[in-house]
């Protein structure tokens, strides 16, 4: 097994990576929360989801996190009556994305918090390494 402190830096790095991917998907969802289809009656932007998976890394001997898959939310689209919209169907209804801003914002908060926690772990691991090095320095 690798030095545990080095390993924890790598693990925290994997966590930062996974959370930033999550944040990217969230921003994509929020940015596209009003994106309707370009053809009449077509499907609008479908909300994307991220799922995580823990993988055992042989080199570090620890459980790293990675993004398992980026999926599509199957929730039905919302229908809005807007006959003037180019994406409106024959009855005048427009399909709007199944993105709920409240859910996205809550998810963003959580991603932010987990990112911070990972950053804290990385900081402290580096700090502990430095302490050990400074023992040698002052001797």
């Amino acid at each position: 097994m690798l030095d545990p402190l080095k390993a924890s830096l790598q693990i925290a790095g994997a966590g930062l990576d996974a959370q930033s991917t999550r944040l990217r998907i969230i921003s994509q969802n929020i940015a596209n929360s009003q994106s309707t289809a370009s053809v009449a009656g077509g499907d609008p932007y479908a909300r994307q989801t991220v799922s995580f998976d823990s993988v055992f890394d042989r080199a570090t001997g620890a459980d790293l996190v990675r993004v398992k898959s980026i999926g599509v939310d199957e929730t039905p689209f919302k229908m809005e009556l807007d006959p003037g919209n180019p994406a409106a169907d024959a009855q005048g209804y427009v399909k709007t994305p199944n993105v709920d801003l409240l859910i996205e914002l809550a998810d963003m908060r959580e991603a932010n918090r987990t990112y911070e926690a990972n950053l804290q772990v990385a900081k402290q691991s580096a700090d502990m390494m430095n302490q050990t090095v400074s023992l040698l320095k002052e001797a």
């Binding site: 995580f52 998976d53 996190v65 050990t132």
Partner: peptide
């Protein structure tokens, strides 16, 4: 120190897998 380092790496694994289903 060894014990602390090992624990640190376990904490790192727990935190980075804070949103992994079934972890």
């Amino acid at each position: 120190t060894q014990w602390l380092n090992l624990r640190q790496s376990l904490i790192a694994a727990n935190v980075s897998n804070a949103n992994t289903p079934g972890f």
